[in-house]
Nucleic acid binder design. Structure first.
Lengths: 217, 217, 217, 217
DNA sequence: GATGAATGAGATTTCATTCAT
DNA sequence: TATGAATGAAATCTCATTCAT
């Protein structure tokens, strides 16, 4: 998807050769793994360097500190999220709209699968105020605004406040994906997409299309 | 709404008198304040005792550690959440169903206002595996099951998987309330309720009622 | 055996009635139990009051502190040890001497069974310098001197330094009893007495008597 | 004599370079000094790092905690004790047997001089049950067994239970050395060896040799 | 470029002792 | 006489960050 190629502050002051880039990559990947498992706060630099099979000293060769590393990841995740947002075309109340929505939700799921740990940290209370916190808030604003504009162009526009509805929509899909990922609620992915797409379509875009979802046993 | 009457492990081994119970209460309340402001991880025991105007030693007279205190709060929050869940009556597709849903959402908002810090921690990655993690998962299961049974009795029953839909619903309202609380997104509360109720009613319960929400300026 | 009837400093400033004496007794007994299990240093006042089924506050009604309580016990143990020492009559090289020695060793074992925890604490390195440390050293001196005088009057007197031999003898019986008590080395008590008496008799008092100890299987 | 080359748990998970090994050694040596002076319980990690001229953080780089460090020392002491035990040759009732015994006792004294603090802790009540406790018990068993086999091959074999006698012997020399070390009882070392060797020789190995010990003034 | 070693500030936790009822 | 409550000094332990090789 992307690469966080810039790295943290210290890395940007030097030119990285092949080996250096590889090491940085290993650290970033390791951080994802550790953030996933422990969250940002509980993640220790020690955990990260162990997973990356490198040393403390090396970590600070590439990142000013733990937060700096997080920013590198977050910049990536933010860009990917914005890119995805812009891909959401107009959603009509008909079957085509439903299809469009369902496809987009699938892509969102993939994005969350990849960037979940980072997205989650944005919303950790402790981050308010910090750079990451503002980053998350800004992103939230941008993303909901884009979605709101889609909703505003739909038949239900008179019934609901688009900005609120967009926020609710984002809340739902962000959190649902989190539940699925972290709790291993094992719904069949297709059922999930059918259901979420249906209810969002009906709730937000005046959808009258009805998916034939087989009831769960 | 709450009592957390049991307290943490050490407190349960002793008989508490009036003064002791008061102190324990002060600690629990202080913890809510601090968790709210800093989140569970960043909260230091020191912060809590400062807010409670007591000493370190006293803290450990009532709770084995920070997590133990959290459990006491969580038990409360869980009970309150379950109680609220059981209050959700049958939701029909008509105006009455809409009213019922909207009222219930208002109550959920109040509950979240109170227990937000605790609910949030349940979902922090670090807690998976731990007692709190399982507690959260169990609760999630129970709550969604109850909601699912309401959805199953609605006209859209054939279109969506009730369990998935219920999970999505819970994801939406939990997260939305979180956005509102933590980011100070300043939507008017009534608009929020109108919007969320409408889209949930339409998306989940086959609602055909249309609220006349004034568009935001 | 004895009673530590005086109690610690605070108790001596008041007149104790029946109830008070009973409470103090409970604390002393509890302390023995706890010192036995954990040693003096690791023993917490909390452990003692729990075993005594009383409270922290009560503890300090009778004893100035943990060490004060220990002194009360130690005074008792010291007196009992000295009393026992004075009971050791002259030991001849014949069967009568052997009998005398064996009997006395049996009594020492009983004393150790009772006062072991206290005796042990005397020898804990941490106590040097403190009152208990000096107390132990003084006692050691007195006891070995008494034993030495018995050895000096025996046929081996020319071969060994009585003071050193007495110290070695005390070392042996103190430590052996400790091994038995703490490690549950399950030698048959009679075999132990036979063996120890025999080797002390032969080693220290020129004993030529030979016990017919059945060899262990 | 010693190496404690393995170090504590944390140190075993890393590869130590020369500097690291040196630091670990400094900590181990410092611990011996502090345990000697204060005993295990009263010894604070702070004392140890001060003596080792390093920091708290460094301590935990090599040892999980104070007990972990103790284990490293104990493993050493145990190995040294076993090695010494195996050096004890057959002891006959003649002068040669006496010489052999006396020499061995001298070596035991040196070992105790070195490892006394560690050996002592093994016997502190608090350690029963823990790893150190079992370690001590196992060692006690092995050592007494070896000594017992020497006793079994001596003329007194019929008179005493070798296993009990060996335990008594060990008790004596362990405790005597402790008295000497901790109480600064100032017996002349040669007199001590003469006396102990004589009485053990006579008591355990049917010794008929008589040392000409000059009586103390 | 990489790494092991070291640090120390800060957090948690324990526990003997005092206090108020 | 008894007790639960409170305290705070001191100990343990953690971990992000810097340093020397």
């Amino acid at each position: 998807m992307s690469t966080a190629a810039r790295g943290g502050a210290p890395a940007q002051e030097r030119e990285l050769r092949a080996q250096g880039r590889k090491t940085m990559r290993r650290l970033l990947d390791a951080a994802m793994v550790v953030f996933e498992k422990r969250g940002f706060h509980a993640a220790r630099v020690d955990d990260i360097v162990k997973v990356a099979k490198t040393s403390h000293g090396t970590f600070y060769l590439y990142f000013a500190n733990k937060e700096d590393l997080f920013h590198a990841l977050a910049a990536d995740a933010g860009a990917a999220t914005l890119a995805l947002t812009s891909e959401l075309g107009p959603i009509g109340p008909d079957e085509a709209g439903y299809r469009e929505l369902r496809t987009w939700l699938g892509r969102f799921g993939e994005l969350y699968l990849h960037y979940g740990p980072v997205i989650r940290v944005w919303t950790e209370a402790e981050f308010e105020g910090g750079v990451a916190g503002r980053m998350g808030t800004d992103l939230l604003t941008e993303v909901t605004r884009a979605i709101a504009s889609r909703i505003a162009n739909s038949p239900t526009a008179t019934a609901v406040d688009p900005q609120i509805a967009a926020t609710a929509f984002l809340a739902m899909i962000e959190r649902f994906n989190y539940y699925v990922l972290s709790r291993q609620i094992d719904f069949a992915p297709d059922d999930v997409l059918d259901t979420i797409a249906t209810l969002a379509h009906q709730g937000l875009f005046g959808g009258n299309h009805t998916a034939r979802v087989p009831r769960r046993a």
